[in-house]
Design a protein around this nucleic acid. Structure first.
Lengths: 211, 211, 211, 211
DNA sequence: CATGAATGAGAATTCATTCAT
DNA sequence: CATGAATGAATTCTCATTCAT
């Protein structure tokens, strides 16, 4: 499960239970949102999958959008954290992107719905404008971009990579990667994470020209 | 406008008018579908934007899904045609992908909603299963893939490009390109079509490594 | 066809044509009303079956209800006439009802939709209150009842039949007959008109008791 | 009211309440269906008469047809049960039909809408094909017919009644009876149940011939 | 007159949210 | 808190009727 209690020490039993149930609802919702999108997902379904009453859900979230936002914030937080971790290792652009790519593939492997949901947000950003309202979400996004930029700028400065337009490259790379991952299963891709990672990294760093 | 009367010669005035109005409805729907997606789009809105009564819409299409399908079939047909044209010039992989990339950028420039809608389908394929039912749509898709494959295989055989996994490359390339284009405006990309095309082609063919 | 031009002599060509077309519409409507009832029948269907444009129909009738009323008035008129004919022969109750019964069976044979429609009215009398407004319809009904009553009263007076409650008998007899005829096909009844007539007349006049 | 809770012992309060409300909806619908027929009846009206919100109705039935089917199944079940009871007394044809006739008159007296609805089904069988789908309904019908047949066959074998065509007689008798009852009020029939029963039974068993 | 396109009032159905228990 | 019944606003779709050509 994606939503799990992590720092339960400092909480009262009541608070822990509350958080636990809240997470159960989020996990159920996550799966359905990922599969169907925001509008398509009904509260009846969330209630059924989460095995709580429909009314109960409203004790934890004040409306459907809030559930979606909570998920997206957590998702963006997790991704942001993972990226930060990799960033903190002070790697070359090549190693940074290799690790990043591997991390996304692994994430897909273990948390497919979360990943698909993230991809979906990038298209659906209009379906629910909750995200635009979410300070946290935008903040994570901006912060992450900053890390990417820094690594790439260093790579350019050190001569590791060509002096490309950084922001465009980020758009390009993330689009390619997320799309590739989310369509890989559908397209019958049977390669291992390493093979897929190498495939992408190879293209991006060396190109497909022979020589 | 995307839907326009092309071969009106052989039609009666009545038929031409009917087609014209049908196209008006399609053009209006297209914009809204592109912006909001299938489920989000209401018939009231289509009626309002197309400036017809709600009932009138149903004189041209038997339900909402049929409008969506009609659009998608036309969109897929147009893209398929453009790709075929480029393919028929018997170009090298480099020139093929360069022209293709330019074509997609140009398409975005002149028919932004159509392009966005196409991108949306790739995520939304669940929202409406109309597409799965559309023989024409699937057919265009398969045919297009065949062209890609042939060009790439020739490129590999002739030694122009490395012996990459063709299907994975197609997934990668299309994902990258479509995502890049659809996010370029949102990301403040001010480059010309040529600049953007070169940017992408350069990465894909030469990589970002410095030498 | 049920609606046919009968007295066309005194009419101008224009009037004859008008009447002819009006009848075509009525004949088409009749079939559909008989099969589906008033509400279920759409003007689109009437237009299609009658092979006239929807608008044309409104040149002959000012609304759907008027078509229905026109049919009902004609139907009630025809039945009323047939009953009058039989009545005018001054028959015994036995012969009167025998002829009447035979007539209804024959009518069903040649004009099944008309007959079914008539039966339907007896249940549907609420669906369209047109009938309540139709003076002619009520008039035919009353007149017919009068004939029945007279024949039966004469039969009672002459000692042919028992002194039964006349109005109740009429209700009973008509209900039985109409229901029997309209369900006969559905129930797999393969008897000839004579056999069916005898069957009913026999029960009504002699009863089913053995002796 | 027609729908009432009968075996509430084994149910929880919640289930009892749910059943109670479901019955309220059915009773309201029954009246309207009887008066107007299936198509004519709107959910707005059912909601209004049953004094529930329109949405509430959908918590108990998944669509309008299901309400109609539920009613028809119950109606057919009740009638079937009553007929079985009378059948189980092993009566002569005369007593069987007398009791049956009385039962139908009594039923009309206490549950007029239910009776009218039943009569309506016999004409409307096309309006909603729900009935064709209802196994239970067809089953009750077939079973009931079987009882009629058995009683009549015994009557023929024992010499009580003439050797008539049984199926045709059933069609005749039921048509006559149902029509008579449903039109009696409308026709100003003021007789008691006994008088009406005797009237019909007398005709059917002894005929109207004077000796 | 003939036509069929245009229309909107009306009907069924869905679903987020409220609320009494 | 937990629950699910109640609700009505919103949505899709139908169809009698009008009207311009």
């Amino acid at each position: 499960m994606f939503f799990e209690i992590r720092k339960s020490d400092s909480m009262s039993r009541r608070d822990r239970e509350r958080l636990f149930k809240r997470n159960e609802i989020l996990n159920a919702s996550l799966r359905i949102f990922a599969e169907k999108g925001f509008k398509q997902t009904t509260l009846d379904e969330i209630a059924e999958v989460s095995e709580y009453g429909k009314g109960t859900i409203y004790n934890y979230f004040s409306n459907k959008e809030e559930i979606y936002t909570a998920i997206m914030e957590e998702v963006s937080f997790i991704f942001s954290s993972r990226i930060k971790e990799i960033y903190s290792e002070n790697l070359s652009v090549f190693d940074f992107l290799t690790n990043l790519t591997k991390m996304f593939f692994e994430f897909y492997e273990t948390n497919q719905p979360v990943f698909l949901l993230m991809v979906r947000i990038r298209t659906d950003f209009i379906e629910s404008d909750a995200l635009n309202k979410s300070e946290l979400f935008r903040c994570n996004h901006t912060e992450t971009l900053g890390l990417y930029r820094e690594v790439l700028q260093n790579g350019i400065d050190s001569g590791e990579i060509k002096p490309i337009d950084i922001d465009n490259f980020i758009t390009f790379y993330r689009g390619a990667l997320f799309h590739f991952i989310s369509h890989s299963k559908h397209n019958g891709n049977k390669n291992s994470i390493e093979e897929n990672t190498n495939f992408i990294i190879n293209i991006v760093f060396n190109g497909i020209f022979n020589q």
